[in-house]
Structure formats: structure tokens, C-alpha cells
Write a protein that binds this DNA or RNA. Structure first.
Lengths: 241, 241
DNA sequence: AAGTGGTCTAGACCACTTT
DNA sequence: AAGTGGTCTAGACCACTTT
């Protein structure tokens, strides 16, 4: 009567939790696939589906003939699961995240924005400016531009501190399927950036220009963020099978 | 008598080729999984293994109930399959790559290098300095440090123009399993960089600090690269299932 | 020789989208 | 209602590593 229906989700969640809480520590061997089938009472194909997902993130490493191991260096990386969510980046770096909503206003799309978001020039957009802090230290200033047309409901309050994907889910009923990032070097040169990020003029910064799309390839958000990496370094992991 | 043994590889290679050569163009629907099983004469599980790999790179998008589609924007990204291979990054950006071997010498590891490569300080390392050009324009200056102990054979010639993973395969019999990248902003400040990258002093650049590991978590290479993104922008894609 | 993950089959039913 | 991908089973044999 207490049947768990979403088997894959359950197995995946359980294994992620065990790795996160070091029940399976860095470098340690996971139970064999056969042992996992026995423990969870599912077929090997189900187990392998889950392990494939974890391996593609670099969380585990599988060696034919030898076993499946927790990646020894997961702890050194702060972008596991992607850059979508700056809040999580902060958490994974070991800090306490705070998100401040600096401003939220409606205006007409610039030509560039209209182009990127597949809008006619002048169509209304919502502009969110937010500041991310790690342990009270500001280090990301993010501007996100969302077509006003996506806001189906007529809410009169939007919580600007929600992670972007939850914001879109909540107020636009849209799910982000993929994103394209452009990363470039920049420096603190305008007064607003210098003030909000609390950094000296000329400080070298990273800039992300990102477009988020849904499954139907429709652009949902265009954003650009300025990232002060003297606070938190940006560390990616990439794995090959 | 003409049996193809590596079924998955064959299917995967064929589908990649078709996408690359636009037999399946951007945004177009792929044949259904059922159709692919018929065409290749394999089970659906085999087809799904391949499609899962392509989807995790963002090459295709699968929509339950609707079909499998080539990502409309694959062409906008130049890091598909990862940053491992700068030569491919250039190709994917539409340029002709050239790799120049600037220097290749043996010396003692610095303390920092020894730490990163799990060596005792002073152990010998091989240092490769290489310049990557896109259509004759220099844009990446890469330094790679490899423990001398990895060079098993006593070759007296090393081809410094090989992509790093082939270099390691060839001369060290080592396969890269994963890498950890740190991306930071920097600027052209030393004479050598300015000269080789042919850029004005103070030009803003990206810097990658990368450590490559094998399956047994052994560090194989530590590298740092300076990247002039005024030549080729760095564009990532990230997808969520 | 025993144990491990990798490939592969031939089904079944479900969730979701399209027609 | 028909078609599509998602989940799931219960096997089999292979390639590779460890004992």
C-alpha cells in the first residue's frame, strides 16, 4: 500500500543523497549494479539508467571490470548540474547565499533584446536586476530580460529572489530545457556595478551572456551577469566516457 | 560476412554524421525510435542508449509524445563535446586550425605543479607550450605540464601539434577520463603573451587552469591557457532533461 | 576463476502529444 | 485514436579487471 511509483527518481534521489552525505565518500566504490538491483528490487536496466545520469555529470566514474566509484574530486567543483542556478553555485562553494532583488521593471525591448528573444522591437519586457551574495559578500550582478507576453496570469507580486527556473515555472508556466552561454572577460567600469559589487574600478570580472530556451526552442530569457571571481572561483568538471 | 560488431558505435557514428552533415537539419525531427530500430536492425534499448548520449550533449532534444528533434541552435555553440580539444573548438567556430609547437622542454616541477600533479617537488616534468591559430590568427596560448614519469617509452620525438588527448594516448598510453577547469578573467601583461597572441597590452583575456585526470583519479596534465576571445567567442550549451 | 561493468535482445505498459 | 518517447523487466553474452 506504500508503493513508490517513480522508481527511477527514487533510486536516483537515494544515490545522490548518499553521495552528498558521504555515505559513499569521495573515491569509494559504490555497491555493484547487481547489489543495487537487489537492494532496490529493480532490474539492472533501471539501475544503469540512474548510474548513466550520475556518470554524465561526473559525479561517479565507472570502470569496466573494476566497479563504480564516487569521483574523488567532486568537492572541488562548484558547477555540478550547471550554471542555471547561482544560488546553488554559492551553496556548493560552501557559502550562505543571499539573493537581493535590486529592481524589477517593465519597459520596451531594445532592438538587440527583441532580436534575441524573437520579439518585435518595442514589445514589452520585464527586466529583473538581482544581486547574489555569498556570506554577505556581493559577487554576481545579474540582469534578466523576460518577454512580458510570457506572464500569463495577472499576478501583482513577483518574488524576485526565486531562482530563475522557479521564477519562470511559477509565473510563466515555462520550463527551461537548455541554455547557451557566452563567457567573456570584462572589468568593473560603470558606477552601478562598482557600487553593487563593492569592488575597485578596473577590477577584472567575468561576464556571462545567456539565453534560456524551452523545449520548443523558444527563447524565454536573455540575461547578462557580471561575476566577481575573487570571491568564488568558477570551477567546472567535464567527463568523457 | 560483412558484419559490424560495434553496433552502438556504428549507430552513434551514423547519427552524428547525419546531424553534422544536415541530413537531419537543425530543428528537424529525427526518425522515431521504432523507425531507427528497423533501419539499423537493433533493439530499441540500443537506439535509446545512443539517443541518450546525443541528448546529454544537447545535440538533440527529445519530447515525450512528440518526437526527437535536432537542437535548432547547435550551430551557435563551439564547445560541443567539451573544451578538451582546442583544435575542434576552432573547427566548430568555422575556422581553419593551426597548432604551433612553441617549445617543449624538460625541467623540475615547481612546488605548485608538484602539488597539483601529486609529485614530489623537483621531480622532472615535460612542459609543452603551444599556440593555437584560427585562420592564421593566434588566439590561444597553452602551457601543459606533464610528469616525465608518464612517458614510458624512450621516444626521441614528440609531435607537439597533436591534440592533448592523442598526445597522452600516443606517448604515455594514458586516457583522459575527466578534467577540472577554473575559468578566470585576466589581461595581456607579459611580453611573451602579447607578442605571441599579437594583442595590445592590457587586452582582456580569459584564462583556463585545467587539470586532467585518468579513470583512477591520477592527475595526468596540469595546464593553463590564455584565450583571446576577440577572435572566437566561447559559447557553451547546457541542457536539462 | 570470479567478479565487474558494457552491450544487446524482445518484449510490456505508461505518460504525453498530436491528429 | 494513434503515435511518440519514458519506464521497466528478465534475461544473455561479452570485455575487462581483480583475485
Amino acid at each position: 500500500m506504500n508503493q513508490i511509483k517513480a522508481t527511477i527518481e527514487h533510486v536516483e534521489g537515494t544515490l545522490r543523497e548518499r553521495i552528498q552525505q558521504r555515505a559513499y565518500g569521495p573515491g569509494e566504490q559504490l555497491p555493484t549494479e547487481l547489489a543495487l538491483t537487489a537492494e532496490f528490487g529493480v532490474s539492472r536496466a533501471t539501475i544503469r539508467t540512474v548510474l548513466t545520469r550520475l556518470a554524465s555529470e561526473g559525479l561517479i566514474i565507472r570502470r569496466q571490470g573494476a566497479g563504480t566509484y564516487v569521483n574523488q574530486r567532486v568537492g572541488e567543483v562548484n558547477t555540478l548540474g550547471g550554471l542555471l542556478d547561482y544560488g546553488r553555485l554559492i551553496t556548493e562553494s560552501g557559502y550562505q547565499p543571499t539573493i537581493q532583488s535590486i529592481s524589477m521593471l517593465q519597459r520596451e525591448a531594445t532592438e538587440a533584446e527583441a532580436e534575441l528573444l524573437n520579439l518585435a522591437p518595442g514589445e514589452p519586457v520585464m527586466v529583473l536586476v538581482r544581486l547574489f551574495l555569498a556570506d554577505e559578500r556581493p559577487f554576481i550582478l545579474a540582469t534578466n530580460v523576460i518577454p512580458q507576453a510570457l506572464f500569463s496570469s495577472n499576478d501583482d507580486f513577483y518574488d524576485g529572489r526565486l531562482p530563475l527556473h522557479l521564477f519562470l515555472q511559477q509565473y510563466c508556466q515555462q520550463t527551461i530545457a537548455y541554455a547557451i552561454y557566452e563567457i567573456s572577460p570584462t572589468q568593473a567600469d560603470d558606477a552601478k556595478t562598482i557600487q553593487l559589487l563593492n569592488c575597485p574600478p578596473g577590477q577584472q570580472l567575468l561576464q556571462f551572456a545567456t539565453t534560456f530556451y524551452n523545449q520548443a526552442d523558444r527563447p524565454l530569457v536573455w540575461g547578462h551577469s557580471t561575476y566577481d571571481d575573487s570571491v568564488v572561483k568558477l570551477r567546472f568538471m567535464q567527463s568523457w566516457v
